[in-house]
Design a protein around this nucleic acid. Structure first.
Lengths: 202, 202
DNA sequence: TATTTAACCATAACAGTGTTATGTAGGCAA
DNA sequence: TTGCCTACATAACACTGTTATGGTTAAATA
């Protein structure tokens, strides 16, 4: 792929290249949204894109590259959910960011499952994909840190951020698997538990 | 399989039957402990057992049955971790059960990943396997309920139990995936966060 | 401008997966 | 002893991700 990219930079780009890549990504995204990762065989993607499978290898370095693109999308959605812009990090706004996170988790279930390893044991995120996770985590830590600084609290910012994240994510994950058959107000319960953690910050 | 079982009950049990089943299960368990679910192809299991693959279908109804057996093992380990016998459900003992849970989660990673869907998207636990999960959950609810009753607390026992579970499991899951590259005292952090939830019970 | 070269892509082939089909050997009952 | 049934090995099937092969087209070079 590096050889191909170098050759592309110096030699003969063809108009069909970007179009094929977009078709593949669009096909993969549609299949993914409707069927999760298990709907993403390379043949299904190729067929849905109206192409053969070879483009998945030349454009995405294989199925992994398609999953990376979706993984990055997933963490970008997490980032956006927690991004409050320039709003001050008040208690209510931190709670709002948690609410947004939980909303995202339940609205974009396929993405959520992918970024938390509930989708494909053979998938290992690339370095670039991991960066998307790091970026989303930094936004979480940023929110917590601003709130902590604003309120002159003395506690470990990293730990506090992880506490908040763990309880929310734990609820989502349990509702996916261990208690999947129960109809409970999962998002509300998760938010309440997050408030418990937040209220313990002092 | 029902036909085979009926025939077995009425006709000719063969000594080789139980021996084959045990060989397959032992082979699967060993592969699983060393390589997780991805090490469990039916051919690998059969080869390791010194048999052909057909026994996996006749004894376990396919690969799913092998995974069910391991899933049940996993939740049985969760049950045992949280089982304090007849000990009174004091604060310290509830904390101890949480500590045991986290210890189990990190010592039996393959099992833990299996029961929380981090292993094989095509695996769906059988009704029997789900019962093992229910049983472990009931032990968690039992512990929380006894503690709540002992301390005359007024709160939702189910919610309280889930809060406790969510924060612990959330930490374990994040340490598996989202923050997998970080070396942090995950079990200690999870236990501290669990104490925050516990301390909020009033 | 004509020829050569490289990129893109369809298709075939490969090695692996879980599962089903087929045939044989051994054990048990009549 | 014969016939039936079960357990099991092996082959075959349909699917998976990936690599190999060859044809067409576009870009570069002479």
């Amino acid at each position: 792929m590096n050889t191909q990219e170098n050759a592309k930079a110096q030699a003969r780009p063809t108009k069909r290249t970007e179009a094929s890549r977009e078709k593949i990504l669009a096909a993969a995204s549609e299949l993914f949204l409707n069927g999760g990762v298990s709907a993403l065989s390379v043949r299904a993607i190729a067929k849905h894109a109206g192409l053969s499978t070879i483009g998945i290898y030349s454009h995405f370095n294989g199925k992994q590259g398609v999953l990376d693109a979706l993984y990055i999308e997933g963490f970008n959605k997490v980032y956006k959910a927690m991004d409050l812009g320039d709003a001050p990090l008040t208690y209510d706004n931190v709670v709002k960011s948690c609410k947004n996170y939980l909303q995202m988790a339940y609205q974009h279930e396929a993405h959520y499952r992918l970024i938390f390893g509930e989708s494909d044991t053979s998938y290992e995120p690339s370095a670039e994909a991991r960066e998307a996770g790091d970026r989303a985590f930094k936004k979480l830590v940023h929110n917590s840190s601003c709130y902590i600084a604003t309120n002159n609290l003395q506690l470990d910012k990293l730990k506090a951020s992880l506490d908040l994240w763990a309880v929310m994510h734990g609820y989502v994950s349990i509702s996916h698997h261990a208690r999947a058959n129960e109809k409970l107000p999962w998002a509300k319960m998760a938010l309440d538990a997050a408030k418990v953690q937040l209220n313990s910050w002092k």
